[in-house]
Design a protein around this nucleic acid. Structure first.
Lengths: 203, 203
DNA sequence: CCTACCGATCGGTAGG
DNA sequence: CCTACCGATCGGTAGG
């Protein structure tokens, strides 16, 4: 009740703002976030929402990073300790599809939405989105490289193409789920990803 | 100079508003369209911009349909007279990739942007986006069905999966071009689409 | 198709 | 973290 809050309280408020902001932005886009609606949803004043961040852009960047953390937690953490290679790419596929089919954010894949929202603009948000997407594609490509060297994928496979295709399947799945509410799509995506990751013929 | 305009003039103005609106919306999104900026870009008053349409939503719907017309003109018109089947799907792939690599709209593929922008919302715009995307996927699937029946694609191919995968590759390509400015991506997409459309082994 | 205007909301700040 | 406020802009309308 007192206006004198502890640093702990301030941190809790900050966290709550980012969490609710992530939910809202997954639906309305990062640019669709507004301080006023956020304040209303949280029972705070607008000054209370923007204060901890200084500007809307800083808040948007934090919201984006929170969405990336959620993705990593759901898709990467479970496989991070597996040895790199084809079997880990198959495990990633499973978790990725599960993440999209049972998404913790109401608007589906945040990075995909943010990517199409910012890909034709300039500035820190575009750069942050590009870097997050870049890192994920690099992660996939690195595993594909290991798989090719180990003979688990055909020797003439282009590792960047594996990342490119898996990413495309994930975006197509995200659209099927969000735009068409098609619950047969996860199985389709599973088959498609398995085809991209088809094992090399034994010599 | 006279405020008394012909119906022809009125039509010209309407067309100009939709055209400039399509350019702007391809960058800022359909929701990012504003009457004020549109009026400014066109040298009109806000009333002059919104008047012919009655509401922003009607204008947004017309902008969306204009973007669909542009896509059809660039990707579909050139192949519409070819016989359906695998070779037409390959021709579509070529035109689709060319369209994305040398896009008439500054923001890249409008439908992809509109899809992620509206897929988590309700209303006429979401419905219109879904219908446009649905029609295109159905077109691809119908050609895949013909190709499978003709033995041009493997007999166990799922035609909906062909449409799903081609669409995913196109979205991945759109991202590579717009977000990463990666001009090696069109070739990658060509290889990926060719793989999806690999001919059935001759019996 | 214009001017002039409406209430609502935007991001953000001053001062406590 | 609040109240009270800022100028700017939003979509839209009245009246010509």
């Amino acid at each position: 009740m007192s206006p004198r809050h502890s640093a702990e309280d301030a941190q809790r408020t900050r966290t709550a703002i980012v969490e609710v902001g992530t939910q809202q932005a997954s639906i309305e886009g990062l640019d669709g976030l507004t301080i006023g609606r956020l304040a209303n949803a949280l029972g705070l004043s607008k000054a209370g929402v923007i204060g901890p961040f200084g500007s809307k852009e800083t808040l948007q960047l934090e919201v984006l990073h929170e969405a990336v953390r959620i993705f990593i937690r759901r898709v990467w953490k479970a496989v991070a300790n597996l040895p790199p290679g084809r079997s880990r790419l198959l495990a990633i596929s499973e978790h990725w599809i599960d993440y999209l089919a049972d998404c913790p954010l109401p608007g589906g894949c945040f990075i995909t939405t943010a990517s199409t929202e910012w890909d034709a603009r300039d500035g820190p948000l575009r750069d942050a989105v590009a870097e997050a997407q870049r890192r994920w594609l690099d992660t996939l490509r690195a595993d594909a490289e290991v798989a090719i060297r180990a003979g688990e994928l055909p020797g003439d496979t282009d590792p960047a193409e594996v990342a490119f295709e898996l990413n495309g399947i994930a975006m197509s799945l995200n659209q099927a789920i969000q735009l068409f509410r098609d619950d047969t799509a996860p199985d389709r995506a599973r088959r498609s990803m398995a085809r991209v990751l088809a094992a090399a013929e034994p010599q």
